[in-house]
Design a protein around this nucleic acid. Structure first.
Lengths: 218, 218
DNA sequence: ACCTGAACACCGTTCAAGT
DNA sequence: ACCTGAACACCGTTCAAGT
């Protein structure tokens, strides 16, 4: 066949096909994507560096929906809360992507940029450098766990014999339908309280480090 | 070769080999396990039902270290806290197994049995059936997230170009070495406070459901 | 009952050959 | 530059053949 006059595929179409496969089946393979695009598997390697790069394209697609514009405009705690809600909504829209994305380290530049902004806001607010990742990771745990809980609970437990675990079976059956926002908000509020206390300790009680807080500290 | 006088392999040895591979490489394949055991891949299918069953063997191995004996002896909150600590320690010992196990639904009977005991304790304490899984899932998020954080942080972010995200790079570098126990304990305490408040609402304010709390409620 | 080799339908990836 | 077919080293799984 040789080179077509206009390229048959591009990174955008690859990302779209991969995300659709993940949404529908929970996973993707390179040949499956190729099939969806009417092309051979080998063709994809002219546009992406390999399977892992496609995972990062999926991550970028899912995370595109996260609004990070509040960093720098809202106070740190309101910004972090708004970011967490938007983050959660983005993942809740693609619950089957969560295990896929959690198993691979974040490399997508645009997503790393969001974490960069979050780190900046927390440093500016006065958090100690050593506490920043802990705060972010705590939020991430809440967000991803809650997104999984919200949209794909049945993927977490699968008793082959429900009679062996009757209480678990009843508890699973009794879970409210989709309304877990209240629980998320409660936990988020608890986390923010904890973060505020951590910040008060850092900025209030003098630290052994004489450098002032903020992102200019060396 | 035909049947050996005494079986060359068994489920126990398969589980051991699989867990060692996961600990060392982060994943396993059926042929790799077979190679470790000096046997052909096809032989494994005489002992396990397939790859997914091996994942469940790994889950059982990791979770064997979880102490669930406090259910039924300690008050619910102390029991849940002790369970969470033991659970976290078990996963922290095999951090690379966490993504593998989170991607597959829990089917291992012994592990399901632990959840069954936890559900029973919470119901006996007076929690509403509809709240029980939320409590357990919240704990699980805390436990697994914290275990990942404790033992495998470098697998979560991997900036190709650290200069593009200088603040993130500094925050990652500034994380304390292994001492995340204090953060875990703080979050666990916050969760327990929230659970106690939930319980007070349930048992204090009369519910529309006339049935008494506890596991006998239909 | 349990191990084996051969086979099947799949992977991810590379590469020379075509335009 | 971009698609292709062929090839490579791998998967997970099945199964008849052996003891």
């Amino acid at each position: 066949m040789g080179r077509p006059r206009t390229p048959l595929i591009d990174r955008d179409r690859i990302a779209t096909a991969a995300l659709r496969l993940v949404d529908e089946r929970g996973e993707f393979s390179v040949p499956e994507i190729a099939r969806e695009l009417g092309v051979r598997a080998a063709s994809l390697y002219h546009h992406v560096e390999g399977r892992d790069a496609i995972v990062e394209l999926v991550r970028e697609r899912v995370c595109e929906a996260i609004d990070a514009s509040m960093f720098g405009t809202l106070p740190w705690d309101a910004a972090v809360a708004a970011w967490a809600r938007s983050y959660r909504a983005a993942f809740a829209a693609h619950p089957r992507a969560i295990p896929l994305l959690m198993a691979a380290p974040v490399r997508a530049p645009r997503v790393l940029g969001q974490y960069e902004a979050a780190v900046g806001v927390l440093l500016d607010a006065g958090f100690a450098l050593r506490d920043v990742m802990r705060v972010i990771i705590a939020l991430e745990n809440l967000i991803l766990g809650s997104a999984l809980d919200l949209a794909a609970p049945e993927t977490m437990w699968e008793p082959a014999d429900a009679t062996a675990t009757p209480l678990l079976a009843r508890a699973l059956a009794a879970r409210p339908e989709g309304r877990t926002d209240a629980a998320f908000e409660l936990t988020l509020a608890a986390c923010l309280d904890r973060f505020r206390a951590l910040l008060a300790e850092t900025t209030g009680a003098g630290s052994p480090d004489p450098a002032p807080p903020g992102r200019q500290a060396s």
